[in-house]
Amino acid sequence: MATAHIVEGGFADPVFASQSVFRAVMDAMARPGSVLPIDAGISPPAPLNAAAAAVALTLADGDTPVWLEAEMAKNEAVAGWLAFHTGAPLAQMPSDAVFAIASNPAHLPPLTGFALGTQEYPDRSTTVILQMASLSDGPVLRLSGPGIRTTNSIAPRPLPGHFEMQWQAINDLYPRGLDLVLAAPDAIACLPRTTRIGNGEA
């Protein structure tokens, strides 16, 4: 029974599903705040949502340690399902993670605790996948930066505590930093490290 939960529910056609999920992620990363639908037809064990799972299956593998927020890490079905479908090892520390997944952003450690890259290799950083209940009915964030013609806005919830302050701290580290994938069950939006939140200029 437990094994079936782990083996089932992945991509029916991994080659084409991961290509189409990747294009959504790429588009979302290139146009911060744009909401892209994710319909990969997968059914991961709760509390992992389908969009977050699809992104993980598309990008994670044996070369990319994945850190799971406590609630997910202690859920054997989630950890087993991800391990089976991606082959990714679990990262012990947020700072060791290439990807991090959190189902409860309120319990996320400080963003600056993840891998932030180095000045020489700013790409050696964590991509944090935050599961969202909604991308449209939370508090409105006004966005600007590369990928955005003038401004864009998004209203995700629930966000980690003091999010705007935390994000400002990430902006200040540029080119070091990290990138966020906000994953509602059926859609994603991205905030790369270059995106500024609020009306102030960086």
């Binding site: 790409d123 590369p146 080119p175």
Partner: peptide, 18 residues
């Protein structure tokens, strides 16, 4: 697929750090 994933990860980082 493994090569594509590796390249896709690099593309996303490239977009995030123009």
């Amino acid at each position: 697929e493994q090569t594509k994933r590796m390249i896709r990860r690099a593309i996303l980082k490239g977009i995030a750090i123009p």
